[in-house]
Design a protein around this nucleic acid. Structure first.
Lengths: 235, 235
DNA sequence: TGAGAACGTGAGCGGTCGCTCACATTCTTA
DNA sequence: TAAGAATGTGAGCGACCGCTCACGTTCTCA
């Protein structure tokens, strides 16, 4: 049984020399993961690719799992920061405009090095098995929730938490599906437009053929007072 | 290097005794996968769980990969058959009714043994790595496409293939996300309703605030004549 | 400048895993 | 009922993998 991935480092690099070693190991790991996948990526192979000895690798990373977790964290931190930047920048825009820009941004972030995104995405379930709680996804969900909260009265879904869950997973999953099965879609503006239509159509209050007036029935629409009740706990 | 998973069986069972052995191995594999995951599921362990010797296992399955592929095929064949039955039965229903029923059916299929669905779903990328083309997904996509084709003029998306890709992956991914992260959603009718709203909102022609008349702009709507042009090849 | 801390090295240990093969047992069939 | 086909057995092989540890090398700083 390999040791837990939870303690992130075995020894902190103090000199710049060792910091460079750490970086080399991390980027080499990403490179080997991209080239061979997780199973074929042995730690000896990663060390060789990084140009360091296997011993050095285990000076800074507690296990193969810990190493992969570190790569994941570096990658997700960066992605999340980019996303947050986009989100705050677009906060005052109308929803369709902001959404279109955000989806374009998400797709663009995968277009550069799609294979790494793919490998890391497919590694996520294993991270969960290793007990690494996915803080990043929680932060992402909180960010989207905060973005949507001021607009809560203009959108259809009564349960905001569920709506955010659905939106985040929809966009993420479709981007990943495109990366691994239809790379051509990533370059196709139609795909981004359709993703946008999907999410907007989900948020848009129901349109009935009778214009403006309330249609035949909107049984699932709740008053603001009841909204809180239905909402799931913050988790 | 393990041998390829493509040749499905090493030897065909001729007597009922060996057929029972095969079945025992397959169900034991599913059980061990559920209990321990793919990595910890050694072939010796599976054989022990099935109550047969490791030699017998390799009489009927060419490799660990081949064994997992067989489990996957058995499972997907059954799921696909159920889905197809629902699809043909609902073919004449109006779209919202049919869609709601289908989504309910998909969710219900995961509710029974969710962990197996989860494990197999997370194993899909590896199947692709092993060169097992996912015929089942292609068949699923063709089925949904055929279901949607007669209604193509009532729905918004111009590129039917892309729409089917988006719908199938959306529903699948959200069900899987619920299975592995929010099992409570699977029992919650609201979740099914929201999934339905998501897909219907995607297919529904755009409603603008100005009723009935064309709104400010619908630049991306194509005439039926141009539809064919934009549609992706059959793949 | 030298002592000790930080950093780097790689042979190899302990263990597991996928899989084989020589052989035993059970069934079919003429 | 006997011969041979089908089926079942499990010790163990070869390969690889994660990881350690005893030992060099380079840096820091009093």
């Amino acid at each position: 049984m390999p040791r837990s991935a939870s303690q992130p480092r075995r020894r902190n690099p103090r000199q710049s020399r060792s910091q460079a070693t750490c970086d080399a190991i991390l980027t080499a790991t990403a490179r080997v993961l991209v080239k061979d996948g997780y199973d074929a990526a042995s730690t000896n192979r990663i060390a060789k690719e990084a140009g360091v000895s296997i011993g050095s690798l285990y000076q800074y990373f507690p296990s193969k799992e810990g190493l992969v977790v570190a790569v994941m964290e570096r990658h997700r931190t960066q992605s999340l920061a980019e996303f947050e930047a986009g989100l705050t920048q677009l906060a005052s825009q109308p929803l369709p405009v902001a959404l279109r820009a955000l989806i374009g941004q998400v797709i663009a972030s995968k277009v550069d090095n799609p294979r790494l995104h793919q490998v890391l995405h497919e590694l996520l379930p294993r991270l969960r098995e290793w007990g690494t709680v996915d803080t990043f996804e929680q932060r992402l969900i909180r960010m989207v929730r905060a973005f949507l909260l001021p607009r809560a009265h203009d959108i259809r879904p009564a349960n905001l938490d569920m709506a955010v869950f659905i939106m985040v997973h929809t966009v993420d999953a479709l981007c990943h599906a495109a990366v691994s099965q239809r790379p051509d879609y990533l370059e196709d503006d139609t795909f981004a437009e359709e993703l946008c239509a999907l999410v907007l159509g989900y948020l848009r209050p129901e349109a009935t053929s009778t214009p403006r007036r309330r249609g035949r029935s909107e049984p699932r629409r709740l008053s603001p007072a009841r909204r809180q009740e239905r909402a799931a706990p913050a988790r």
